[in-house]
Amino acid sequence: MAVQIVMDRTGDSRYLFDPASPAQVAEAERLFRHLTDRGFTATARVAPGRLEIIRSFDPGVEESVFFPRLVGG
């Protein structure tokens, strides 16, 4: 199972999907596009404590973490 973790001001939400399921992959890709279109930064966990920014959906990524755009003032 792969997981997409979405961080926001309330904490985090986790969305699991099976990379072998075309329907679940399509839904995971839809969520990826929805979040990145809204300004979230998408990252892939490549090692413990290490994330890399990703610009396109890859169903082979086991753990994606999405961070909201920071707003300063």
Rank of each mutant, 00 (worst) to 15 (best):
M1N: 05
M1V: 05
A2W: 00
A2Q: 06
V3R: 15
V3G: 08
V3A: 14
V3E: 14
Q4G: 05
Q4N: 11
Q4V: 04
V6Q: 15
M7E: 12
R9K: 10
R9Y: 12
T10Q: 15
T10F: 15
D12V: 12
D12G: 15
S13H: 15
R14H: 11
R14E: 11
R14V: 13
R14N: 11
Y15Q: 09
L16G: 11
F17N: 05
D18V: 00
D18A: 01
P19I: 02
P19R: 05
A20P: 01
A20V: 00
S21T: 01
S21H: 03
S21V: 00
S21D: 15
S21Q: 06
P22Q: 07
P22W: 05
A23E: 15
Q24P: 09
R30I: 03
L31Q: 13
L31H: 07
F32E: 02
H34N: 15
H34W: 14
H34R: 14
T36I: 06
D37M: 10
D37P: 04
R38M: 13
G39V: 01
G39S: 05
T41V: 10
T41K: 06
A42P: 03
A42I: 02
A44C: 02
R45C: 02
R45N: 01
R45E: 07
P48W: 03
G49V: 00
E52L: 08
E52N: 04
E52H: 03
I53P: 04
I53W: 04
I54T: 00
S56K: 10
F57E: 04
G60E: 08
G60Q: 07
G60Y: 03
E62A: 11
E62S: 15
E63P: 01
E63C: 07
V65F: 06
V65Q: 09
F66S: 02
F67L: 06
F67T: 00
F67I: 00
R69E: 14
R69T: 11
L70A: 10
V71K: 10
V71T: 15
G72V: 15
G72D: 14
G73Q: 12
